[in-house]
Design a protein around this nucleic acid. Structure first.
Lengths: 285, 285
DNA sequence: TTTAGTCTGTAATAAAATGACATGTTGTCA
DNA sequence: TGACAACATGTCATTTTATTACAGACTAAA
């Protein structure tokens, strides 16, 4: 838990002198972490043991330990994290807010992920005869990205963002096929139907979606990126970013599982596209 | 600058004893920040002043100051940051590494961005008659995503990942049209040609690419996400994630610039797709 | 081997944090 | 209103921690 927030929240549980300390720290945390207990006591106009008691009240071992906690909370906890974009934010403000909230979302997603399920998913993917990635709306670009990643592995992959094509593809699927469905909410009716269809035709369905959603219930394996839903209209869909990173994770797991021989393949793909690029050191070529 | 990285980088500038200290700190940084100089000295099997000298060599005021720096660097930088995935990493390890390195990349990208250019780009976009997003390969899914975002603004937008369509679209462009080109390296020949074509036809070209690249040179405005290039085959293309976040930033800037009336539009779009979803509280509907 | 230079440790000193205790303050109840 | 209790706060002593000064040891070049 962020120490600075913690102080702010418990502001009214402190005594008079302790609050003085709290206020000084909130006002100038950067200075506080570089001061000795004596200096800070003088700044807050209290005695040194008071500062010490203040620290203990915040579940730290003492003043030095408190400084450490505070320093850490200042390090990540840049002010904007989790704060929404505001109407009168300038470019620097909204840029920082969006980047930081995206990073915070990734952190949440990372901690919420079940790596044993990831391992399972990688298992299934490596043994698949054919892999399909389907998404609709915003999620279709995630599917598209997944195609791009897995395509390099030189295995049969496909990706459709057309619901008719998706359904047709499912009808033609057989055992050994893996369908990866991507949906933020997991409540898109069409995609739930696709999941049903796929399972009726013996395909294995992996869903990148919210756990407990209708789509999740129809799937064989659910990888949920539990990221706060985007209630705010400004809120960029950070869940989409988390899904993309999850795709990266699956692709990496896939590569690792396939072993070293397989990795040469990847190098060849990279080499293969070189001709279509300007050489880095000879731009005019 | 991240203290832990700094130590690792300067490992060979240290003397024998100082390196012992460095190694202990790298191996168990979490323990180090909670230890006194005496404890740490004992752990590294050196004297206390040596530890102190070590701290000073890293541009800190002394041991307590050093601990503070280290604590901060541990706060963001969980151990895996910037470390590549290793052949014998398990699912938890590679998942964490990928998430963390992605987050680190976003942080780098955030700090490297020029917000005045973003502001400029938003200016241009809001005044555009028509906006097109083009990308090839991995970048095409970024373009696709951008389409998805800007489509909601109810303005003419298009997105092609077909080079022929891109060129045709450029030939038909006129003044007032904005073309957003997305490329990680900025050295994809085809896309550079697209940029030239677009400019010949008086379109305004915004490039999301590496600064100084051939594509950048052909563009009117460059938004560069300077993220380390992916040298490692395992390395997920974090630059792509950074580009997506940048798209979010532009879309947000766009929304803000258009003002409150415009924001009602967004709500209508959100309402509009409700029918295609299962109701959250009535899943069987 | 000597010598200049750099490391490294010991021991003394200074600084910082903590603990114990005494004083002050506030509020309650007779 | 006065007395007591509970809590808050500060002073001072003690302990822990960090720093400085200095001397011995090592290393590389002459």
């Amino acid at each position: 838990m962020n120490t600075l927030e913690l102080i702010q929240k418990n502001l009214d549980t402190f005594s008079k002198s302790e609050r003085k300390v709290a206020e000084v720290i909130i006002a100038s945390a950067q200075i506080a972490i570089h001061s000795s207990i004596a200096t800070l006591a003088k700044m807050a106009d209290v005695s040194e043991p008071t500062v010490n008691r203040f620290c203990r009240r915040l579940d730290t071992k003492g003043f030095p330990d408190f400084k450490l906690h505070l320093a850490q909370s200042l390090a990540h906890g840049t002010p904007y994290v989790n704060r929404n974009v505001d109407e009168d934010d300038g470019p620097s403000a909204y840029t920082a807010k969006i980047f930081e909230s995206t990073m915070a979302c990734l952190d949440v997603a990372k901690n919420a992920l079940d790596t044993s399920l990831i391992n399972r998913a990688v298992d299934v993917l490596t043994q698949a005869n054919k892999i399909s990635f389907f998404g609709l709306g915003a999620s279709s670009s995630v599917a598209h990205d997944a195609l791009n990643k897995f395509f390099r592995f030189n295995i049969p992959v496909s990706c459709f963002d057309d619901i008719v094509m998706q359904k047709m593809s499912c009808i033609n699927s057989t055992e050994g096929d893996v369908i990866v469905l991507i949906s933020h909410t997991g409540r898109t009716k069409a995609l739930v139907e696709v999941a049903q269809l796929a399972r009726e035709n013996d395909a294995f369905v992996i869903a990148l979606t919210a756990s407990g959603s209708p789509l999740a219930l129809q799937s064989n394996l659910v990888l949920s990126v539990s990221v706060p839903e985007d209630t705010d209209i400004y809120m960029p869909m950070a869940s989409r970013i988390a899904q993309l990173v999850l795709i990266d994770v699956l692709a990496t797991g896939f590569t690792l599982r396939r072993g070293p021989k397989f990795r040469d393949n990847l190098k060849r793909v990279k080499e293969g596209i070189k001709d279509s690029r300007f050489d880095k050191f000879n731009l005019k070529s």
